[in-house]
Structures are given as structure tokens and as C-alpha cells.
Design a binder for these strands. Structure first.
Length: 258
DNA sequence: GCCCGTGTTTAGGA
DNA sequence: TTCCTAAACACGGG
């Protein structure tokens, strides 16, 4: 159940461990939504060198020497493991075997994590890109009167933010998650953009500091608001929870614009 | 042993 | 048209 900062940490470590290795075999075991046939994936990747691993939105991208890209979306429960020789991890989705005997496997007990060969370029900006700045969000927020948390979670508007970090970001920016998007004043949109960057990059640092080699799982214990173990914000305000399809954690410190 | 939690897609209602 | 809600996926971690 990793979110953007977790994925960022995974990509950092996977790049460190796997870049430069050559693919011997790409074995698809259970990928119902893969956009090409198993054979085409194998034929495309076999013999290519892995140039780099990076994150795009909520996906990890593996870029290969001929320019092909393998996108991996972990969805709710996808997990990555490195192995030597034969993969022994349960619920494999896809395995990459390298010529040096090492391998990478994506697993998911739910079977919904999915790989994509050469994913289409997305129109919406990544949460950490320059394009997701004040100008962009200002004009984009004008167009919607749904609540601001829903907008942050909408991957067609801004990519990479999930339920837990949406709450952390909005608390950091002092904006109620129930604020109406087109009612946010200009200076609050500036605060929001700053908070998106600060919360996400600080989280990545915290994760890598406590788990330097992490490539799966999630670290959430440092979260201030979206954290079932905490009852009060750092400033002492009570944390409230709104139940929904996903939970929203917030405090009265956050201003409501309607 | 029990409950919580994460993303996306799809369906249905207001 | 737009927005909201719920359900489904099916276990692992605490």
C-alpha cells in the first residue's frame, strides 16, 4: 500500500541495485491487464540492459537501453522483491530475470498490480514536477467545485498523491479537506503547492533514513494526522476522522473555504 | 483472533 | 453534466 514517497524510495534503491543489468527473461505469470502479449513483452525486453528505475505518478518505470519502458503499478498490495536464481515469493505477477542470476519479482495476493509496456505519456503533471505549480493548480481548481481532497486524489489532475498523504498535505497547508476547490483563495493555493512538495520530499527522506534499503512495504509511523495511533496534532488540536470509502483525518486548525 | 487499509474501475443514484 | 457513494478485488500486518 505504498504511496508516492515510498515509491520514490523504492525507485532509488532499485536503480542502485539493478541499473546496468541485462534482461535474460521477462516472465509474466498473472497480469490480466498487461497491454501486450506475454510473448511480446519477453521478446521486447530480452537482451536489453536496464538503464534506470524511476517513479512516475504512482508507477515505477524501468527504462531499458533501446528506449522501451516497463511501468509497474503496485495498486493496493503490490510488492517487489529481489531474488537469486528462482523466485520463491508467493503471488507473482511478473518476474524479470537478469543474466547475472539476480531477479526482480512483483507480487500481489489480489492479483491487481499490473505491468504496462511503454505506457502512454500522461497529460496530468506529477505531484513533484514543476508543471504542478501555482499557475497550473489555480486554473485547474477553478474548473471544479468538488472538495479539495478529491481533487488531490484525482490522477487526471495531479499524479501521485494517495489517501494518506492527501490528509497530511492538507493539514500542513492549513486547508480543510472539505473546502470547495474553486473557493480557495490564491495565497492558499500557493501554500498548497508548497505543502505538496515539503510533505512528500520530507517523507521520502524520513523513509530512506529509517529504511535505507527499502523496496517494498510502507512506512507511515511519522505521519502527523493520517495516523490511527495519534489523537492530537503537533499543535495539540484533536484529530477528527470522517468515515467514507476511505478515511479522512483532519483537525479544526484547517480552514474551511466554501 | 480480529480489524484495518491502500488504488482503481464500475455501477447506480441524486 | 457533474458529483457522490458503495462495492469489488482478497489477504497481511499489527
Amino acid at each position: 500500500m505504498p504511496e508516492l514517497p515510498d515509491l520514490q524510495a523504492f525507485s532509488y534503491n532499485l536503480d542502485k541495485k539493478l541499473a546496468g543489468k541485462t534482461v535474460k527473461q521477462a516472465a509474466v505469470i498473472n497480469a490480466k491487464k498487461l497491454n501486450v502479449s506475454h510473448q511480446e513483452l519477453q521478446d521486447t525486453l530480452e537482451g536489453q540492459k536496464l538503464d534506470k528505475v524511476y517513479r512516475e505518478g504512482k508507477e515505477l518505470y524501468l527504462k531499458f537501453s533501446k528506449g522501451d519502458v516497463l511501468g509497474l503499478h503496485l495498486m493496493l498490495h503490490g510488492k517487489l522483491f529481489l531474488f537469486e536464481g528462482k523466485n520463491e515469493h508467493k503471488y507473482p505477477i511478473i518476474e524479470l530475470h537478469f543474466t547475472d542470476g539476480n531477479g526482480l519479482v512483483l507480487t500481489d495476493f489480489q492479483g491487481i498490480a499490473n505491468p504496462t509496456l511503454n505506457p502512454e505519456e500522461k497529460e496530468s503533471p506529477d505531484a513533484l514536477s514543476q508543471d504542478a505549480g501555482v499557475d497550473y493548480l489555480t486554473q485547474r481548481l477553478q474548473k471544479t467545485k468538488t472538495n479539495i481532497k478529491t481533487v488531490l486524489l484525482d490522477q487526471k489532475i495531479i499524479r501521485g498523491i494517495g489517501n494518506a498523504y492527501a490528509d497530511e498535505i492538507l493539514w500542513h497547508a492549513g486547508i480543510s479537506p472539505f473546502s470547495i476547490s474553486n473557493k480557495l483563495p490564491g495565497d492558499k493555493i500557493k501554500d498548497l503547492v508548497k505543502s505538496i512538495h515539503i510533505v512528500l520530499t520530507e517523507a521520502e527522506k524520513a523513509i530512506l533514513k529509517s529504511n535505507p534499503d527499502i523496496i517494498n512495504g510502507e512506512i507511515r509511523d511519522f505521519m502527523y494526522i493520517h495516523n490511527s495511533k495519534k489523537t492530537h496534532s503537533p499543535k495539540g488540536e484533536e484529530i477528527k476522522v470522517k468515515e467514507g470509502t476511505r478515511k479522512t483525518y483532519y483537525t479544526e486548525e484547517q480552514e474551511l473555504y466554501t
